[in-house]
Design a protein around this nucleic acid. Sequence first.
DNA 1: GGTACTGAATACCCGTGGGTATGCAACTAT
DNA 2: ATAGTTGCATACCCACGGGTATTCAGTACC
Lengths: 200, 200
Amino acid sequence: MPRLPRDEVRRRLLAAAERVFAERGYADSKLEDIARTAGFTKGAVYSNFGSKQELFGAILSERSEAELADVMAGLDAGADVAALIEQAARTVAQRIIDDTERGRLGLEIAARAIRDEETGAVVAPMRRAQRASAGRAVREVTERAGITPPVDPELAGTILHCLTNGLAMEHLVDREGVDADTAERALRAVLGWLTEGVRK
Amino acid sequence: MPRLPRDEVRRRLLAAAERVFAERGYADSKLEDIARTAGFTKGAVYSNFGSKQELFGAILSERSEAELADVMAGLDAGADVAALIEQAARTVAQRIIDDTERGRLGLEIAARAIRDEETGAVVAPMRRAQRASAGRAVREVTERAGITPPVDPELAGTILHCLTNGLAMEHLVDREGVDADTAERALRAVLGWLTEGVRK
DNA sequence: GGTACTGAATACCCGTGGGTATGCAACTAT
DNA sequence: ATAGTTGCATACCCACGGGTATTCAGTACC
């Protein structure tokens, strides 16, 4: 039986770890289970990663900051502001609701980042970049439409980012309480507010 | 040496557990440490609580849903809308920033609620009540001022609640990135928007 | 096709901490 | 007083899982 290339083994282990960590949380994720999920044994894990923590850390690097970027990519560049908001709200809400795994892992990462210095050092700049990215998006859209947003774009980015994460967390905790419709309406309302400026 | 009343022992253990769980997270909190922090030994824990999980669960019941209530209580009932917003934004932002322990524990609870059914069953209704409470606050303020909010109060409650939690989480992950001033400006902006309706 | 090397599998070690059984001192009742 | 009860302390057990030493199969290179 021909051996898989090392990179492929690594990839599979990371994918498995991502799922298992999301599902059970860091503490309850056993390296044995992660390995078996990927189709290997614990030996493969220690051959590719130095420790459990390192495996967890490696996942961070994989989670691209492209998160927002590919939401933006899904939008029609030509559409008018109202249509953009409609699309963005729907897309982000959808993500919150059906990509539960992402949300769970995100929460797990945040929870760990608070106590583990190393994790925090990676996560904090990542989050900052995401907020800035959201801020730029607001700036671009409002500038293009020639309107003045009610708050400066940077703050708007923070508001959007935190609201999105807050909604995601709330949905994870209370599935029915915060459903797709609620999330979408909330986002639409806030996006609408942020882009309903006085005409310049 | 006179013995402390049972209730006092329980109280001290809960207080200690709250601190330790917040500080180290559920998994890394040792019952031995919690007990010693309270000035007792593990025996006291098992005399008052059935298990580690039960101790953790007991903390939930103690965390009153009064959270928002006492923010509201701190506001001048007579003040006008603008002043109310100013006060509320400041108070909530302060809480987010300097009551780090509360935030940490809240995140820990949320993280656990996702996977532990029992915890989830307690937390979900609690959160629902908090959102509803925020919604009522918006309704009262706007009605009293005779203005129509841009979104219905219930949704406004959800937005405020999620934004607040999102800001708290963000601050925990990136202390300097989201500081008191940022949180306050974000809250003031959103509160301002929610209460700047058309005059009826 | 032999030799050296790489990397995953296997088996084992051992610290750790939740849980429990027993001891023993402080309150209660009669 | 004193027997019974309550409730925390003490000592112990043991499952569990991260980490490691060793083995052994597949691969590369000459």
